[in-house]
């Protein structure tokens, strides 16, 4: 994952590709996974947040490189799998976040995703895609019953989108000045 790598196509040259300071992504991932594992211990309701997904979306939208996005998503997903205990097989979150990373960078390459409203809507969209892929995996690959939709998931999507808007603004500070 080369933070300065840029794969913009000529057709998409009008959309800015953001570069990050060296180690910013790794540092962000460490912090995010620490918070994801740590916060619910003290604030149980914060377990509803999927911070790794938000980071996947953010870096996908910012880097606008599908290959980088899907690889970063896969790495984040596999780390999440490995931290989720033995009940979650390797690849469950990995596949979901690989696809989300790919979609986010593909969309980011075609749209301007800097506006908070766009970020809010895209986060809800990707949360739904992520959840849908998880349900498919559980139902098809693992033969586990899983609901497609619930009120809890809808609330989780909204909360993650709201948090995402603020988190993305915070992560914008890690960008190199253009």
């Amino acid at each position: 994952m080369n933070e300065t790598y840029d794969l913009r196509s000529e057709a998409e040259s009008h959309i800015e590709v953001h570069k990050f300071h060296a180690g910013a992504i790794v540092f962000t991932l460490v912090i995010i996974f620490f918070l994801q594992a740590f916060l619910p211990q003290y604030f149980h309701s914060l377990a509803i947040l999927d911070l790794p997904l938000l980071v996947t979306i953010y870096f996908g939208l910012s880097r606008r490189n599908p290959s980088t996005g899907l690889l970063l998503g896969m790495a984040i997903g596999l780390i999440q799998d490995s931290l989720s205990g033995p009940t979650v097989p390797f690849g469950l979150y990995g596949i979901a976040k690989t696809i989300v990373g790919y979609l986010a960078s593909s969309i980011g390459a075609r749209l301007d995703t800097e506006h908070p409203a766009a970020r809010f809507a895209l986060t809800i969209l990707f949360f739904g895609v992520h959840q849908g892929i998880l349900v498919l995996e559980r139902r098809i690959l693992l033969a586990q019953p899983e609901v497609w939709f619930s009120l809890h998931l809808a609330i989780a999507a909204l909360i993650n989108a709201v948090v995402g808007v603020f988190l993305f603004t915070l992560l914008d500070r890690l960008r190199k000045p253009s």
Binding site: L71, I95, T98, I99, L141
Partner: peptide
């Protein structure tokens, strides 16, 4: 990138199936 996506997903599906 599409090819890479397919390869990565296939890899992880195989990993899931193996597990």
């Amino acid at each position: 990138s599409l090819f890479l996506l397919g390869a990565m997903i296939l890899l992880q599906v195989m990993m899931l199936a193996y597990q």
